[in-house]
């Protein structure tokens, strides 16, 4: 008897507390930028594909849902010939983002990934690649890496000396 009254009391009290329920989807909740939802591939500040097809995200992925193949552009940049994420397997753990040495792969706050057809959960590069830099506006891997590409020769990356003249003996 006492416990039933207490329950009634608790319920009654809740009539006056603040409502936590969000009327999704009419009302969208705020999700911080670091929220881990749908994965995107971002671009360099200069607009080129960031991903260098290093495969680190794929190997970091605990459910093995990333597959890609490296290829190379005329200008020397490595990039993925295809890049596929199977979102029906992805657990939004963010390990890929942590592993990525170029900040190419990023998780976004978009979690609305439901599909009637499971096949639509497979995202290819054309679905993943966005036009912006995502959370890291400034970073450009190729300006740090030692490998030369067109427009950034040996010695022109950050913190590099000009190439050694092997034939000179001067200090």
């Amino acid at each position: 008897m006492w416990s039933q009254l207490r329950s009634l009391g608790t319920v009654f009290k809740h009539l006056f507390t603040r409502v936590e329920t969000v009327q999704y989807p009419e009302e969208m909740p705020y999700l911080a930028p670091r929220y881990r939802g749908r994965i995107v591939l971002t671009r360099d500040p200069d607009g080129d594909e960031r991903c260098v097809a290093c495969n680190l995200c794929a190997v970091a992925c605990p459910v093995d849902c990333i597959a890609l193949q490296k290829t190379e552009r005329e200008d020397g940049r490595w990039y993925p010939e295809f890049f596929r994420i199977n979102f029906s397997r992805c657990i939004m753990c963010g390990m890929c983002e942590e592993a990525c040495p170029t900040y190419a792969i990023q998780l976004t706050p978009d979690f609305e990934l439901c599909e009637y057809d499971r096949n639509n959960m497979v995202y290819e590069k054309e679905h993943l690649l966005i036009d912006g830099v995502g959370k890291y506006p400034d970073y450009s891997f190729w300006h740090v890496a030692g490998k030369a590409i067109d427009g950034k020769d040996k010695g022109e990356a950050q913190k590099e000396k000009p190439p050694v003249d092997v034939r000179s003996n001067l200090p």
Partner: peptide, 15 residues
């Protein structure tokens, strides 16, 4: 043992 992409490599053909 760290062979990657097993659940995605064929997903382009069949999920």
């Amino acid at each position: 043992h760290r062979y990657s992409g097993r659940t995605a490599m064929n997903a382009g053909v069949n999920i």
